[in-house]
């Protein structure tokens, strides 16, 4: 009885096997190249006045905003596949980029933004997942909001209203607290570190109910009171000209002298 040997065809056609291997390699390279080219770039520049406001609502990816001394807003983004639709709008002095609205009901990849704004701009950034970094901004408002996971880093900020809120992740603020300003930092789980000048003046309510880990550092004085078995610190530093509210549901709060 004739029994066909395993891989008999390959053994009997060595030339054709080599061709097949080459074809597979070529196909693999072609598909890899498609994957690489799927990462697209978006770039656009907007003329801007002193009080321009940038409002960005991202789905996932990192967002970096930096203040510069030009009177224009530069938005560049790298888009991972499946690529998102980006349709910026300018309405009453606000540049609005809303990726949630523009891509509703679609699966899209990460969009990593790199944005330059005039130093005196107001910046309002929101994302569902991803790190947010804002630096060198001295406008009226800085707002950074992450609905779920991601770190927030705000450096060299001097704005009258600063809000940073995330779910799981750290918050770092390094900036000035202006007289009459309002500063709010809130996290679900992570570390909140605030680096501010010793000359700052604020009324403080800091709450860390789970860890009770509130370290005031150089800002500890007789005007600060620990309440609720150490879960909350309330008090005044300096003349108390600004308002500072810090809440970390399941993490720590630390003050660092700038």
């Amino acid at each position: 009885m004739f029994s066909r040997p395993k891989f008999g065809w390959i053994a009997s056609h060595p030339g054709k096997t080599a061709i097949l291997v080459c074809l597979n390699t070529v196909l693999f390279l072609v598909f890899s190249a498609t994957e690489i080219s799927a990462q697209k770039r978006f770039s656009r520049t907007f003329p801007a006045g002193q009080n321009i406001r940038l409002q960005l609502i991202n789905r996932s990816g990192t967002v970096t905003v930096e203040g510069w001394d030009r009177q224009e807003v530069s938005v560049t983004a790298s888009l991972e596949a499946p690529t998102a639709v980006i349709t910026p709008q300018t309405i009453d002095g606000t540049i609005l980029i809303n990726l949630v609205r523009d891509n509703q009901g679609r699966e899209v990849g990460n969009v990593n933004f790199n944005i330059r704004v005039p130093v005196t701009s107001s910046v309002d950034i929101e994302t569902l997942i991803g790190n947010l970094t804002v630096s060198n901004v001295r406008g009226g408002l800085v707002r950074a909001h992450i609905s779920s996971e991601g770190d927030i880093e705000l450096t060299n900020i001097a704005a009258f209203q600063v809000t940073a809120q995330n779910g799981i992740g750290d918050i770092f603020f390094d900036g000035e607290m202006l007289s009459g300003g309002n500063y709010r930092f809130a996290s679900l789980r992570g570390n909140i570190n605030l680096r501010i000048p010793f000359t700052s003046s604020f009324k403080l309510v800091a709450t860390a109910p789970s860890t009770r880990n509130i370290s005031l550092g150089s800002f500890s004085n007789g005007g600060m009171n620990y309440l609720g078995d150490g879960r909350r610190v309330v008090g005044k530093f300096g003349d108390g000209n600004s308002t500072l509210s810090v809440t970390n549901q399941r993490g720590s709060i630390s003050f660092i002298r700038r």
């Binding site: 996932s60 699966e107 569902l128 997942i129 609905s147 779920s148 779910g167 679900l188 549901q249 399941r250």
Partner: peptide
């Protein structure tokens, strides 16, 4: 159903943390 795996996992982790609190 239209979310990717990363989105679903991040959502679940955050919801879990909130529910714990």
């Amino acid at each position: 159903a239209s979310w990717n795996a990363r989105m679903s996992e991040a959502f679940d982790r955050n919801l879990f943390e909130i529910d714990q609190a």
